[in-house]
Design a protein around this nucleic acid. Structure first.
Ligand SMILES: [Zn+2]
Ligand SMILES: [Zn+2]
Ligand SMILES: [Zn+2]
Ligand SMILES: [Zn+2]
Lengths: 161, 161
DNA sequence: ATTACAACTGATAATAAATAGCGACAATCT
DNA sequence: AGATTGTCGCTATTTATTATCAGTTGTAAT
């Protein structure tokens, strides 16, 4: 009988205005991997009454339902959120820029082979993985190069701001 | 000439009793990836006066000097520490058991290829990476199998504790 | 050994991210 | 409409970590 009662543990979720605002927000800016604060600040412009506790609560619920993705960036204890739509459900990796903090998505499946190897050599049954590459993004690389050039050849005036 | 002046920014570090205790502790249990609390509790047995703030401080210094490694496990906001000796300086990956929480080291270099690809396709200059595989460790897999067997064939008494 | 100076210490306050508790509200179903 | 109960906004709490600060100690030069 216990098993039957267990069906109950998928508690039904409601469609509140606040939840819709959060999903809309993530759909709009979600590819930027937003913090709770950022989400809260944006939503406040449409709903000045909303509480940040509600944002936390809903993000947790949405994550439990598998509708959003909670991303951690080592070295930074705060969570970042993104929509987990059809395209990105296919768990991707993150490129994190040490200069500007940008979090960039990267699709790839090369780790499947590695997972098989781990199961074989370590007896560890891999369910999924979190991968982050740290470095300097394209934009910052270009900015740095420009700044470097400006130093090398004294530069035509406007190069210095 | 700038390079010479840069030597200054390595502020000199001192050899205190507390720092030694922390390194000893990590050398002894370091392969277990300990939390600050765990390190603090163990050291307290040898130095009842030590403050947990000192443990935090020294771990931060040691990490900045590259002597210890700070490991984050997504979904868990607390940091884990391990010694970064010759063997493990060669940045390894972590297998994290969802059942017992074990953090297991895994040596591998297959990601170099992936890093090259990222630089090519995304223009992102990879400096290093953090990789974690989540799943069930060998011990837990075996325990689960044993438990499962115990249910299937009613079991010779001692199987139930 | 004495001195001097900055890095360090222990105790505690402060910060930051996230959660828990609670009375009131409102989404959903009959 | 009425009942149920998930959710809301508010506030207090918890947890991990850092900042502060007066007193201490490692280190190196005298
Ligand atoms: Zn960047
Ligand atoms: Zn992403
Ligand atoms: Zn395990
Ligand atoms: Zn490790």
């Amino acid at each position: 009988m216990d098993e039957i009662r267990n069906d109950d543990n998928k508690k039904e979720t409601r469609n509140t205005r606040q939840k819709k605002l959060i999903i809309d927000c993530l759909n709009k800016y979600g590819s930027n991997h937003m913090t709770v604060e950022e989400i809260f600040n944006l939503i406040q412009q449409q709903d000045t009454q909303i509480s940040i506790a509600t944002v936390y609560r809903n993000l947790r619920l949405l994550e439990e339902q598998g509708l959003v993705n909670k991303v951690f960036v080592a070295d930074d204890a705060t969570a970042y959120y993104e929509i987990k739509d059809a395209a990105s459900s296919h768990s991707h990796h993150h490129l994190i820029c040490r200069q500007c903090g940008a979090i960039i998505d990267f699709e790839d499946d090369l780790l499947e082979a590695l997972e098989k190897m781990i199961t074989l050599t370590k007896g560890f049954q891999v369910q999924d993985h979190h991968v982050a590459f740290y470095g300097i993004c394209r934009d910052c690389t270009e900015k740095n190069k420009a700044a470097q050039d400006a130093v090398e050849k004294p530069a035509p005036d406007e190069a210095r701001q």
